[in-house]
Each structure stands twice: as structure tokens, then as C-alpha cells.
């Protein structure tokens, strides 16, 4: 019974930022940043010498790609922390980052593919960057699948944490293997032209805007995970109470002390 009362005394789920004044600040600044990024991408930044207007897609592409890698870095970090401290909050952060990371990786692959079709003339090429991103996508889709298939909550957290760490460690290995392998099958490489100051500024603003967006997403997903965790716990307690009541109904109920 002390178990139940302890859980009851725990604070309720905090308001997600969409509803409080903090939410107002976050979302207003997010909109302003995104608007600024859009303006700079489409109007402020000059056309590029070789690619013309197509390069404008790269601002968003670079931003989501960097955030995908960042999100997976957070997964690894949170996984290590979970195995060390065994605090479920770290696991919630890991799963939130993993899901957001998969989303951003999907965006990276999609935008890169669209750009590549236009500039290189192909939807896909086995460039180390592309290949590594694709492998990363596979690894973290597997991470999410693994979580789905483990029922025991403690086992799920432990096993997922291990896989989350292994996945990130594998990234540099994948990178080098693909880079060496490519020397066997040469492919077209990216044309590198000089960046003007306007381009750099545009890139910076876009990256900042998307980063804010990414952190908002991770936070929301984290809150969702915490809430469902709490729901799961309450469900267990409700079941416990049912058991106790059912048993207590039979006769001399051992009343819980402090």
C-alpha cells in the first residue's frame, strides 16, 4: 500500500508547452525563426553559380541532417546514463530522441534524394554520407522495433539502451567502410563551390530554426513517454488495489500501516 500512496503523491504530468505562457514564447519564437529562415532561403540568399536555385534545398537538408546525427548522439548518451543510473527518465529521453532522430533521418534522405535527382540526375548514389545516413535509419528503426517487442518494462529499457549505444558506435565504422568501398566503385562527387557570406548567414539561421524545432519535438515526445509511463504505473496500482480489495473482502484484512 505504501507503494500506491507513494505513486499517488508523485506530481502530475507537467503541462506541455503548447498550453502555458512558456508555450506561447516557444511557439512564437519558433514561428519567427522559421519565417526568417524561409525568407532567407528563398529571397535573401543569392542563386548559386553552378546549381542555380536548386542549392536552396540544401539549407534545410543540411539542418535536418545535422539534427538527425545530434538526436542519435542524445540516444547514446541517454542510454549510457540509463544503464548507469537506472532512472527511467533517461530511457524516456532516449526513446524520444530516437523517434525524432528517425523522423529527421527520413527527412534527410527524402530531401537529399530530391536534390540529387535534380543536380546529379539520380535518386540515389552510394556516397558515404548517403549510405551512412541510410544505415543509421535502419539501425534506429530496428531500435524502435526492438522496444515494441519486449513486454517487461525493465528488460525493454535495458536492452534498448544497449542497442542504442551499439548503434552509435557503429556509425564511424560504417562511414569508413563505405568510403573505402567507394574507391572500388567511383561515383559522382558533390561539386563544391564557394559560399558567400549571405549563404553562410542563411545556413546559420536555418540550422538554428530547425534546432529549436527539433528540441521542441524531443521535449513533447519525452513528455508523452513520461505520461504513458505514469499511466502504465497507475494501471498496475489499480490492479494491485483490486487484488487487495478482493482479498480483503474475504475477511480479516491486514490494514496497512505507515
Amino acid at each position: 500500500m505504501s507503494l500506491a500512496s507513494r505513486a499517488l503523491r508523485r506530481r502530475t504530468v507537467r503541462q506541455p508547452p503548447l498550453f502555458g505562457w512558456r508555450g506561447l514564447v516557444v511557439y512564437t519564437s519558433l514561428l519567427i525563426l522559421m519565417g526568417a529562415a524561409l525568407y532567407m532561403i528563398f529571397i535573401y540568399a543569392p542563386a548559386e553559380r553552378v546549381q542555380g536555385d536548386a542549392h536552396r534545398l540544401l539549407y534545410g537538408h543540411v539542418a535536418v541532417a545535422w539534427l538527425a546525427f545530434l538526436a542519435f548522439g542524445i540516444v547514446a548518451l541517454a542510454s549510457v546514463m540509463y544503464l548507469w543510473r537506472r532512472n527511467p527518465r533517461w530511457d524516456s529521453l532516449a526513446v524520444a530522441s530516437a523517434e525524432v532522430g528517425v523522423l529527421f533521418t527520413t527527412l534527410t534522405l527524402a530531401s537529399g534524394s530530391i536534390w540529387g535527382r535534380h543536380v546529379w540526375g539520380v535518386w540515389w548514389t552510394w556516397d558515404p554520407r548517403l549510405t551512412t545516413t541510410l544505415v543509421l535509419w535502419f539501425i534506429y528503426v530496428a531500435y524502435l522495433a526492438l522496444r515494441m517487442y519486449i513486454d517487461n518494462v525493465d528488460t525493454r529499457r535495458r536492452v534498448a539502451a544497449i542497442f542504442g549505444i551499439v548503434g552509435v558506435v557503429d556509425v564511424p565504422i560504417v562511414w569508413y567502410s563505405v568510403e573505402w568501398w567507394r574507391s572500388l566503385h567511383p561515383v559522382q562527387s558533390v561539386t563544391r563551390a564557394g559560399l558567400t557570406l549571405e549563404m553562410v548567414l542563411t545556413l546559420v539561421v536555418t540550422v538554428v530554426a530547425f534546432t529549436v524545432f527539433c528540441f521542441v519535438l524531443i521535449r513533447q515526445r519525452y513528455l508523452l513517454e513520461r505520461a504513458s509511463d505514469e499511466g502504465e504505473g497507475l494501471r498496475d496500482i489499480v490492479r494491485n488495489r483490486h487484488d487487495e480489495l478482493r482479498l480483503a473482502g474475504a475477511g480479516s484484512a491486514p490494514e496497512a500501516g505507515e
Binding site: V166, V174, W181
Partner: peptide, 16 residues
């Protein structure tokens, strides 16, 4: 079912 999902992406460097 899960095994190939977990092992194949990580084994790509070995394959290459």
C-alpha cells in the same frame, strides 16, 4: 523476426 532487423544494419561494414 527481430534478429535480421538488428544484425544486418550493424553487419554492413563486415559485408563491405
Amino acid at each position: 523476426m527481430l534478429m535480421p532487423l538488428l544484425a544486418v544494419p550493424l553487419a554492413i561494414p563486415v559485408m563491405l
